[in-house]
Structures are given as C-alpha cells and as structure tokens.
Amino acid sequence: MAAGLLVHEVADLCLGKPPLKSLSVSATIADALATLKTSDDNYISVWICDHSNKNSFIAKNGDCICIGKICMVDIICYLCKEENISSPSLALNSSVSALLSKAPSGLVRHVEPSSSIVEVIDLILQGAQNLVVPIKSRIIGTSKRKLLQKSSSTIHNGREFCWLTQEDVIRFLLNSIGLFSPIPALSIQSLGIISPEFLSIKYHSRASSAIGAISESLANQTSLAVVDDDGSLIGEISPSILACHDETVAAAITTLSAGDLMAYIDCGGPPEDIIRVVIARLKERNLQGMLEEFMIDDSSNIPFNSSSDDEEFPSPTSTLSRSRRYIRSSSYIRKSEAIVCHPGSSLIAVMIQAIARRVNYVWVIEEDGSVVGIVTFSNILQVFREHLDSMV
C-alpha cells in the first residue's frame, strides 16, 4: 500500500504553491537585498537566462535555468567577511553570483511535474535541498506584452515555477503515515537515524568565528547548536531565524558572542544593552562604514574596553547567574530555543515536532541536556526509502 501511495506525481505536492520570485545572475547583492525586503518569501531564486545564445548548458532546460537560491543569511554572512566589514556598501554592489560561488553543486534541481515522489526522495538523498517544479500557468491567453512584463519576476521559458522542499515531502508522508506501520512508532535510536555529527559553538565564543558554520548549516538546512562548557545545549543560532531579520544582523555577528547573538535575534527585538555593546565595539574597531550603512543609532557614548584579542567576548549579561542567563521562559517559545527530543522518542513524534516548528531537524539530547546528535528530514526520508526497497 505504501508503494502505491508514492507513485503520486510531484504535481500533487505543488497544488496551491505560489510562483517563486527570481533574480538574474547578473543582478547585484543590493538588488537581491531589495527584493528580499519586499517579498513574502524568505528565499529568491537565481537564474541564468539567455534567449539569444543557445549554449549547451542552458539548452538542457530551454532558455532559462535556475542555478541556486539565496536568502538574507547569505547576504549577512557575506557582509561579515573580513574583506567586507569595513565597507558594506561596496560589498552590496558585488554580483549576486558571489553568494553562489561556494555553494555545493546540486542543491537546486529542476524536476518535471510528472516525476514520482520516489524520484524526488532519491534526489533529496543525493543532496538536493530544493527542487524547482513548473506549475500550471495562470496567464494562459495573456498578451505577449504582459507576459514579457511579468517574465522578469516569475516567468521563465513561458512557465511559472515553485519550490518543492523537504518539508513538503515530509508533510505528504505524515498525512498517510499509517500506511508505513509499525515504523512511525519505533524510536529514532532503534532506527539508527541520530547523526552524531553536528555544528556547534560555545556560548561565550565569538559569533564571528561561526560564520562558516552558519553558511554550512544554511546549505544543509540544519542549525548551529550553542552549548556551554559541559556540552549541554543552551540554544541555537538558526539560519531560518536569521533569515527573518535584515542585513544589520551582520554588525551583531561581527561584534557579539554567540550567546549575546541569540539574545539579539530573540523575541521582541534586541535588548538595548546589547545594541549599545554593538555600537561600542564597532567604534573600537573603526567600523564606521557599518554604523553608517546600517543606520545604527549612534547616540551612545559609553566606554567599553576592547576585547578584540581575546578568544571569547565578555557578555553584557555576564553578571547574571548561570541559571538566569540560560533560563527558558515558559510563557513563550524563544526564537533561539532549540527544539529537542530524546533517543527514545518515536519517529512520528519527531516528525510532528519538526513540522510544527517549520524546521528540517530536531536536536537529540540526554536527560542532563548534553547533545547526542541531530535528526534531519534527510535522515527520516532515508528510513522511508529503505522501507520501500524492502517491499520490492
């Protein structure tokens, strides 16, 4: 029965999805920033389009091909690079291709609507993070002029496209989870899907030391664990949360510790004392360009001793006790509070947790809070794929 379910076509998962917004690979990072700020989607696609020169690379998918996707996190990490922090305005004038140059190949793949769900799962397990799928055009009968006017944002090769994500596939499987019994009730430990390899940073370490890890977690659709000296999980620096902020977070990453960055991006906006620390440290490092470009309120003249040569940053909340500093509020879910489970948690429970919080992973911890590993949607899809193989 499960095998019959998965012969459904990709088109079944794309019903009602909005057309994705796009940019040309020749656009600047400033163009990408402006588009992200006016878009309802946290991601925009980047395309190569050549309607005059039919080279072999583009011809595989017609005149246009999607070569990647970018979000605010890509821009933030780019602005945090040592060569860009002194002049962010100059960095924003760079080509958007600079954000894609080091992206692993195959993260974005074109898929036909008639492809099967099994084919989609296989592509994801091969490393694809997002699939670009044509959707039925809602502009049939539209004049050629209107089509051309719209083509710069959503139309390519005369068609509109949408993203198909790992979350879409997991939701599809969850809706028919009973067909896979008894697998959903088994523990993630017994299924062997807890990955012991994960990205982490200590609470007091420089946030800037984790720029590479943030980029990697974005590419892998996971997150960066923030741990204490004993290896207990305190929270996380999540690319999905960073993507909801603007480019000014680059100033916070450049100047704050990992723990204070969590507070900066948490619910309710950054605390005033942390903003003051950001300003003070930007001044110390002569990063006037960041103050001006990001229009950070420079009304504070507080003195602050430089710590640029230290491995760890002193925190503006360093006078707080450990219990208060790491407290988890019961009245609301903090953005930086990690979603966790235990080795004995069932597969279906972990799936529901991740879907409810719109993340592609769940941290696995012991009773004492120490991190065991991480379970990702890719790990989960591997279980279902192996189950299908066993039915053949």
Rank of each mutant, 00 (worst) to 15 (best):
A3E: 10
H8A: 15
V10D: 04
V10A: 06
L13H: 03
L13N: 09
L15Y: 01
P18V: 06
K21C: 11
S24P: 07
D31L: 03
A32F: 00
W47Q: 02
D50V: 01
H51R: 11
K54M: 07
F57S: 14
F57N: 13
G62R: 00
C66M: 06
Y78A: 07
E83T: 03
N84K: 05
S87G: 10
L90G: 15
A91R: 02
L100S: 15
L100N: 09
S101A: 12
S105C: 12
G106H: 14
V111K: 07
V111H: 02
S114P: 04
E119C: 06
V120K: 07
A128S: 12
N130E: 14
N130L: 12
I135H: 00
R138H: 14
I140C: 11
G141L: 09
G141V: 01
S143R: 15
S143D: 13
L147D: 04
L147F: 02
E160Y: 02
W163D: 03
Q166G: 01
V169I: 12
L174S: 08
S176T: 05
G178T: 07
S187M: 11
I188R: 00
Q189E: 14
I193N: 01
P196A: 09
I201T: 06
K202H: 08
K202D: 13
Y203I: 05
S205V: 04
S205H: 05
E216T: 13
A219V: 11
Q221W: 08
Q221R: 09
S223A: 08
S223I: 11
D229Y: 01
I234Y: 09
E236C: 08
I241A: 05
H245Y: 15
T248H: 12
V249C: 08
A250R: 01
A250M: 09
A251N: 04
I253K: 06
I253F: 01
T255L: 05
G259E: 04
D266W: 05
P270Y: 04
I279F: 01
A280Q: 07
K283S: 14
N286T: 11
N286G: 12
Q288W: 04
Q288L: 13
G289F: 02
L291N: 12
E293K: 03
M295S: 13
D298W: 03
S299D: 11
N301M: 15
E312L: 14
S315C: 08
S323W: 09
R324T: 05
S329F: 10
A338H: 00
C341Q: 02
C341T: 01
S346T: 13
S346C: 06
A349G: 10
A354K: 04
V359D: 11
N360C: 13
E366F: 02
E367A: 09
I374F: 07
S378W: 08
N379H: 08
V383R: 03
